[in-house]
Structure formats: structure tokens, C-alpha cells
């Protein structure tokens, strides 16, 4: 049997490549991200998730194919009942290889991860501060740069970097607009910050993503991303 390993490795290798593509395709279908990339952060995060799907597909195919191949090629056939497998119990070179190579791969993914993190959290010029307050089970918004008023819907201008300055009144909450991708908890006694730049005009929903009691599922707020002119008009309306 040992002499045939070269042939087995060849077949398994081809299957690993094929299955990497198949699994990647299946995962793309199974893990659908929201169609709308509503913020400057969305595309970077979606790309990062896409790169991780390739990692899942590649590593998954490697293990599943070799396992599946062994199940088929190395199964005990009728008449083999008393036969034992080939006797070998380790290979230091291989073990070192599959320690070092994954180490390199995760390092690469780590570096990519740090870069994307820096990109999606970087402070921007021209940031507009919105104060977000979470309480059981509603949201309040204030616009300190535009005057003294509070709203229950969030209205922001498109393509303007936002600095959300957030606090919780009672328990933990978490700010999450699916189309914007990023999220951040609100903590009583602490001000937390989230940077996001909405890039799509439209009406979205803010949902609380941290279990906060009875009506947590319904702790929602409307979010409207509008043009700068519409935003200015809305501000004027609020100040009246």
C-alpha cells in the first residue's frame, strides 16, 4: 500500500483544490451579507469576511477531503477484517510543517485584520458628533454642534464622518445598524465611541445588539441618511 501513496496524494491534492472552490461557493451562498453597504466601513469589513471565507474553504477542504478520501480509499474491505493498517506513527517534518505554515497563515490574517481595523476606526477630518443615549427600551439622539435638542430618530447627512458619543442610562445596550456593519456597546457610567461614515442615502433601522431586558428585541430606532441640504433643513426644523 505504501508504494501507492504518491498516487493517493495526487488524487487527494486535486480534490482539495476542487473542494476549496466548491466550499467557497457554498459558503458564499450560505453566508449572505446584507446587499446594502451603507457606510465607508462596510466594504472593508465585507472584504475581510470574504477573505476569511477563503480561509475556511481552504482549511476545511484540506481536512475534509483527506478524511473523506481515507474513508473511501482506506476502508476495510470484506475479507480485511483482521488486517491492520500501515505501521507508521509520526513524522516530525510534517508536524513542524503543519505547525509553522498555519502560524504563518494566521500571522498574515492577523496583519490584514489589524490593517482593516485601523482603516475602519481611523479618525477623520470634519467629523460630526452625534450623542447617542440608550435606555430601556428606546434611543435618544442629540446634535451638540447644531443646538440643544433631542430626537428619537437619527438623521444624519450622507458621506459625513460621524463620531458617535454614546452612553447608557440603565443597563448595557449596543448600537448596531446592519447596513453600516460596525457595532459598539453603550455602558452606564462610561462614554463609548464609534466612528462610522454613512455612504448610502436611505432609511435604516438601529437595533440594540446587547440583551437589555424585557423588550430588547424591540429596542429599535429609525435612522435616516439624507443629503446635506435635507439635513440642514431638518436641523432648522428641529431648532424652531
Amino acid at each position: 500500500m505504501r508504494s501507492n501513496y504518491r498516487r493517493h496524494f495526487l488524487y487527494a491534492g486535486i480534490l482539495v483544490v476542487v473542494f476549496t472552490l466548491v466550499i467557497q461557493w457554498v459558503l458564499d451562498l450560505s453566508l449572505p451579507l446584507p446587499d446594502i453597504q451603507g457606510s465607508a466601513q462596510s466594504a472593508a469589513i465585507d472584504n475581510l469576511i470574504g477573505q476569511h471565507v477563503w480561509l475556511i474553504a481552504g482549511a476545511g477542504a484540506l481536512v475534509l477531503v483527506i478524511m473523506g478520501y481515507s474513508i473511501v480509499a482506506f476502508r476495510a474491505r470484506p475479507g480485511d477484517e483482521d488486517e491492520e493498517g500501515d505501521y507508521f506513527h509520526g513524522h516530525s517534518g510534517l508536524e513542524i510543517a503543519w505547525t509553522v505554515i498555519p502560524l504563518i497563515v494566521v500571522t498574515i490574517y492577523g496583519v490584514i485584520g489589524v490593517q482593516v481595523l485601523a482603516q475602519v476606526t481611523a479618525p477623520q477630518d470634519n467629523e460630526m458628533t452625534v450623542e447617542v443615549e440608550g435606555l430601556q427600551w428606546s434611543w435618544r439622539f442629540a446634535y451638540p454642534e447644531h443646538g440643544e435638542f433631542q430626537t428619537v430618530e437619527m438623521v444624519v447627512p450622507v458621506n459625513r464622518p460621524l463620531l458617535l458619543s454614546m452612553s447608557a442610562v440603565d443597563v448595557l445596550h449596543s448600537f448596531w445598524v446592519v447596513e453600516w456593519r460596525v457595532k459598539q456597546d453603550l455602558v452606564p457610567g462610561i462614554t463609548t465611541e464609534l466612528r462610522v461614515t454613512p455612504t448610502e442615502v436611505g432609511e435604516f433601522q438601529l437595533r440594540c445588539a446587547e440583551l437589555c431586558g424585557l423588550r430588547h428585541a424591540y429596542m429599535l430606532a429609525d435612522v435616516r441618511v439624507v443629503s446635506q441640504e435635507d439635513f440642514d433643513a431638518w436641523i432648522d426644523e428641529q431648532l424652531e
Binding site: 474513508i71 482506506f74 476495510a76 494566521v106 492577523g110 485584520g113
Partner: peptide, 30 residues
């Protein structure tokens, strides 16, 4: 914390690869 967590993949990978290598060339029964 991100880097430390990614490192967990390395010893876990050793297990997976060692398992499939255990099956490779055996006489499997099910």
C-alpha cells in the same frame, strides 16, 4: 487579544492534521 486568539488555531490545527494522518493508510471500519 486578536493575535492571541488567532494563535489558538495553530495547536488546534496540529490536532486536525494528526487525526487525518492517523486515518491515512489505515484499515478503517465504521
Amino acid at each position: 487579544f486578536m493575535v492571541a486568539t488567532l494563535l489558538v488555531a495553530v495547536p488546534t490545527g496540529v490536532k486536525f492534521f494528526s487525526w487525518v494522518a492517523t486515518m491515512w493508510g489505515g484499515r478503517l471500519r465504521f
